[in-house]
């Protein structure tokens, strides 16, 4: 199984294949269409992370000492980036999630989506993922 670092390196390699921004986003959008959704009936306000531009719902599970995440968004690009984050965070130990550096977002040039000014809910989502993991340390 890949480590937290290896999973991030793999995503960076995938993105390095494309020079054009639109192609990179096409990949993100495809991922956004693929990932499991939280159906509207299952969404609740506790899961909601309100952004100014888009909204994110996050549900976490803790099983066999590992963390699992289910997330959704009303915007497909946000959802695609959620997909990337879940690829990296899913099935990791709470300690890893809290302590290890999340570097792939910046390396693939998507840091704008995790800036406080973007207000798409993603920054709040990463923070909440870490807070949820912290509960199990």
């Amino acid at each position: 199984m890949s480590t937290f670092i290896e999973k991030q390196e793999a995503i960076i390699e995938d993105f390095d294949l494309f020079d054009d921004w639109m192609e990179k986003y096409e990949m993100i959008i495809d991922l956004g269409k693929e990932i499991r959704s939280i159906s509207e009936s299952q969404r609740n306000d506790d899961q909601l992370i309100e952004g100014c531009q888009s909204r994110v719902w996050l549900r976490t599970e803790y099983k066999d000492s590992l963390m699992y995440f289910f997330a959704d968004s009303d915007a497909i690009i946000t959802k695609g980036i959620i997909g990337l984050l879940i690829k990296v965070f899913d099935g990791e130990k709470p300690e890893t999630i809290v302590k290890e550096e999340l570097f792939f977002i910046k390396r693939i040039g998507l840091q704008e989506h995790l800036s406080p000014t973007r207000a798409n809910g993603l920054l709040g989502m990463v923070k909440r993922m870490k807070m949820e993991a912290l509960k199990h340390i």
Partner: peptide, 14 residues
């Protein structure tokens, strides 16, 4: 039903 944020992000990249 497309979210405006999605379209805006792609327009920006163009």
């Amino acid at each position: 039903q497309i979210h405006p944020f999605d379209i805006g992000t792609l327009l920006d990249k163009q």
